[in-house]
Simulated scan of single mutants.
Amino acid sequence: MKRDTVYRLEMTNVGNEHYWTNIVPGGLNGYTGAGQTSATPASPRMLQASIQVDL
């Protein structure tokens, strides 16, 4: 019996760069006037693999 099969491979941040994805004054609610900011680091290098078989 023939079964359709799909192989997937995904890699993010291939160079494993370290950077900030966003820098927001005063957090997510906007500027607070207190001089505080928030920043989100980028995701590290990641590899995901999957196999899908149609039965």
Rank of each mutant, 00 (worst) to 15 (best):
T40P: 00
P44D: 09
K2E: 08
A39V: 04
S43L: 11
W20T: 01
Q36W: 14
T12E: 08
T5A: 11
V6E: 11
M1L: 12
A39I: 01
I51A: 10
V24N: 09
Y31F: 04
M11E: 12
G30W: 14
M46V: 04
V24S: 06
R8S: 11
Y7D: 01
Q48S: 09
Q48K: 15
M1N: 10
Y19H: 13
I51M: 14
L47D: 01
P44R: 14
V14M: 09
R45P: 01
G35R: 05
M1G: 12
I51K: 04
D4L: 13
T12C: 00
Y31R: 03
P44H: 09
L47P: 02
V14I: 15
Y19D: 04
G33A: 02
T37R: 05
P44G: 12
R3V: 07
M11Y: 07
L28R: 09
G33S: 04
Q48R: 15
A34G: 03
N13D: 04
M1I: 12
N13Q: 07
V14C: 00
N16K: 12
Y19C: 00
M11P: 00
G30L: 05
P25F: 02
M46S: 10
A49M: 14
K2M: 02
G35Y: 06
M1D: 09
A42N: 15
A49G: 15
M46E: 06
V53T: 12
Q36S: 08
T40H: 05
H18N: 09
L28C: 00
G33M: 05
D54A: 13
Y19K: 05
R3E: 02
D54C: 01
V6D: 05
T12L: 05
Y7M: 07
Q48L: 12
A34F: 15
A42P: 04
I23W: 13
L47S: 02
L47V: 15
T37Y: 15
M46P: 00
A39C: 02
E17I: 00
P41M: 07
G33Q: 03
P25S: 06
S50E: 10
G30M: 05
E17Q: 12
G35T: 06
T32Q: 11
T40V: 09
Q52V: 08
P44A: 07
W20P: 00
I51F: 13
T32S: 10
N13C: 03
T32K: 03
G35I: 03
Y7G: 02
G30D: 05
Q36N: 13
K2C: 01
T5Q: 06
L55R: 10
D4C: 02
A34R: 14
Q52I: 09
H18D: 10
Y31M: 01
G35N: 07
V53C: 04
V6I: 15
D4W: 15
M46D: 04
N16D: 15
T40S: 11
R3I: 04
